[in-house]
Nucleic acid binder design. Structure first.
Lengths: 170, 170
DNA sequence: CAGTTTATGTCAGTCTTGTTGACATTCCAA
DNA sequence: TTGGAATGTCAACAAGACTGACATAAACTG
């Protein structure tokens, strides 16, 4: 499995793209690209007292307004205690509003305030600008491949979250 | 710039893939995929007293044996204090060897020991297995697009690091 | 050779963000 | 109605990032 010479086998098509060296390059590409991916919002967040965790919470609350803490938890993949600390500061700072559920009073439904939406836009704009440049640079076919590989890299539970957000819950 | 209706403009080809919604999907895909990307090594590392920082150091030392601390620093993009803490434990645990430079005695050249290489292989295998599955699933054309977009997402300094590792230093 | 720069390492302190444990509230079903 | 399950909160702690200050040794420069 870790054979550096892992034989490029030929079936219907060349499998040279599955050599360990190719895979290693993909791993390094992911590493470096993710740094670029987060760099711009990180710069903005650093000026305020916020971090990447705040960005993620804001992003997904914006994406699915009224979502519950539990739902957000499963999307973000952190513990509720960790998320709660972030939410507490966002609520205290008036960026997020937490409303007690009407049908189930244990649940809290989360919404961005106007100020929260303003920050979301600022962060999103920065991140999308880089994304747009990369997309434009690579072209639509490359983008299709990009998404295809990323989706195949996810756990099935994440694929479900991803598709739910993409297509809307069924 | 944050106009959700950002006009799909038509030039020589459709630019529908550059809508804010498409970019947002790409952002979320990166987020979820990166979790999958790190999940397997993280599980292994958690069993030992190590974290993702140790993995990164081990990966790049393996990739460029004899590299100096400073060089590793610029690849990883962390502070020397942060890297030093990680290296200290890896050296103490006998996974990494630090040799004083022969031509410049200020420099320390870093190498994996046999034990270090063994761990590297274990971590790499896990990560490559997922990568291989994703690649196989998506096919060679998608993989080409995947790499193209990732590379376009990097800062130029990271692109340089990435290409150096890929093609070997000129 | 003296002074400056470079490469590395260390100590101390802080911040973000993850963790576990304990607990309060609410809902639901036996 | 009572006990368990679900939801969310608070407290304490750990990993790993950061900055700043400083020490040492070697290399370079004028």
């Amino acid at each position: 499995m870790s054979d550096a010479r892992s034989a490029p086998v030929y079936g219907g098509e060349s499998l040279l793209f599955l050599t360990d060296e190719q895979l290693r390059q993909g791993i390094e590409a992911m590493f470096f690209a993710y740094r670029g991916f987060t760099a711009d919002p990180d710069r903005i967040l650093a000026e305020m007292a916020y971090g990447r965790a705040h960005h993620r919470a804001i992003h997904f609350i914006n994406r699915a307004p009224g979502t519950t803490v539990n739902n957000l938890l499963s999307i973000l993949g952190v513990t509720k205690q960790s998320l709660n600390r972030v939410l507490r500061t966002l609520i205290a700072d008036g960026l997020v509003e937490s409303r007690v559920g009407t049908v189930d009073k244990r649940e809290r439904h989360l919404f961005l305030t106007d100020a929260g939406r303003a920050l979301e836009t600022k962060l999103s704009d920065a991140q999308r600008a880089r994304m747009r440049a990369a997309y434009k640079d690579a072209g639509p076919e490359a983008v299709a491949g990009f998404k295809q590989v990323l989706e195949a890299m996810m756990d099935t539970s994440m694929q479900r979250s991803y598709r739910n957000l993409k297509d809307g819950p069924t």
